[in-house]
Design a binder for these strands. Structure first.
Lengths: 240, 240
DNA sequence: CAAAAATCTGCGGGATCCCGCAAGACGGAA
DNA sequence: TTCCGTCTTGCGGGATCCCGCAGATTTTTG
């Protein structure tokens, strides 16, 4: 068995290396990559079917790398090993995992044993292992309560990119009013309804910008999500 | 000599611990803290005058912690040890360093030797040590060319928070028109002047939101900066 | 299948935003 | 002092945004 480690931090990389060696004695070769770009290339060349990957890397973060890797070989087993359980990451990952694929999401704060157990479960047993904290995020994300619909999330990303209502309407094939409708719902769910000063002209917010900020502070958005969205927007603009 | 280490990642923490031991044989006690809140408390209790600190922590990031520590004892020597040289971080740090204080900013990607050298320079020689990459960011940040004035940065933060023009005017004691004036300058410097489609109604941007996004992508803003700004806004709102 | 809920859409209006024009205020350089 | 650049402020107008109202369409539910 071969294992590919994709992680930009040298300390974490060597820690992972040791963990893999210890947890998987049947593994005869461990390869390392220090970012998403290199990781993709090596995965392709060595046909690695077992990958441990960080999410926050540059250039090319874990989600982008995983997407192209899974597109080429969907049976690849990937364990995401990240510092954070931001909703943006969780959403990003579950959007790209192929049907029936075995994958995992373990936080770096997890114990040694948990990491090793996850490695064996995913790579040997082909079982999914999702950190309970991440699982909680997933359910909150998908469930109705306090959760955001895909369409709401979509429009959140669109205004975060700085598109006008009209541009969003064109991009999503909607009427202008529908876009504004979704925006209203978004504002409501984010709770950005001029909350502090009800009737005064005081401290009023620009709802559009405020929504983006609140989403950021709640980790519904993060840098990596913005980066991806910006790239997608660029592609779309190119095709007009 | 006592050294306090404030760093949330256990691996990095123990690495730092070893580096301090190796670089500073005259150091007889090393204390560790895993976030800014704890770091502040320990710094106060133990009157630590020598601190190595990460920037990105939660709760309470390095900049916030450093600010209160320096406010209490400005002669404290702090070495910031961070993954990133985001302009937001660099700006945040140089905004709070007291006059004449010895401090440092070293990237985690720096070599072992560089870190140890920085430790000795700052803690023994009371000399400032700024990573050359960070230094470059500083100059770009302060210089005219491609750099942002304090007032421009200020208004950038304000719209990022989601304030309306009127609210900004009140907060900064300006007329409405002046606020809009500064915004124009900001848009120009960020290059968000409906660049792609000059006259078409196509792909137009909402300048206000777009400016925030571009600033984010350029790392002029980041999560930590937003967090701080949000806290400051909260304070200001409380005092009306 | 029918009722209910959610979503999409047009219309219209008040608030806000973006910005050109132009007049004053302030400070440094000739 | 005078001149010039930068910053500030007022006025005004066109574009955009936010949203209530109401009808049409789609989806869900019983």
């Amino acid at each position: 068995m071969k294992v590919l480690i994709v992680e930009d931090d040298p300390l974490h990389r060597s820690y992972l290396h040791e963990a893999v060696r210890a947890a998987l004695p049947e593994c005869d070769s461990v390869i390392e990559a220090e970012n998403g770009t290199v990781g993709e290339r090596i995965a392709r060349e060595y046909k690695s079917a077992h990958i441990v990957m960080d999410l926050q890397m540059s250039p090319r973060n874990g989600i982008e790398a995983a997407r192209t890797i899974w597109k080429e070989r969907p049976e690849t087993r990937i364990l995401f090993w990240s510092n954070y359980s931001d909703e943006a990451y969780v959403r990003g990952v579950s959007r790209i995992v192929p049907d029936g694929a075995a994958y995992g999401y373990v936080l770096k704060s997890a114990s040694d044993d948990r990491l090793k157990l996850a490695l064996r479960s995913i790579f040997i047993e082909a079982q999914c292992v999702i950190d309970r904290e991440v699982r909680g995020m997933q359910q909150k994300s998908l469930g109705q309560t306090n959760g955001f619909t895909d369409s709401e999330y979509e429009i959140l990303v669109d205004i975060a990119l700085g598109l006008t209502d009209r541009a969003i309407a064109r991009r999503r094939n909607l009427s202008l009013r529908s876009v504004q409708n979704r925006l209203q719902h978004l504002y409501e769910k984010l709770g950005v309804h001029h909350p502090s000063m009800p009737e005064h002209e005081e401290g009023r917010f620009n709802l559009r910008s405020r929504a983006v900020t609140v989403a950021f502070l709640r980790k519904l958005l993060n840098y990596s999500a913005l980066e991806r969205a910006e790239a997608e927007l660029g592609e779309w603009l190119r095709t007009r």
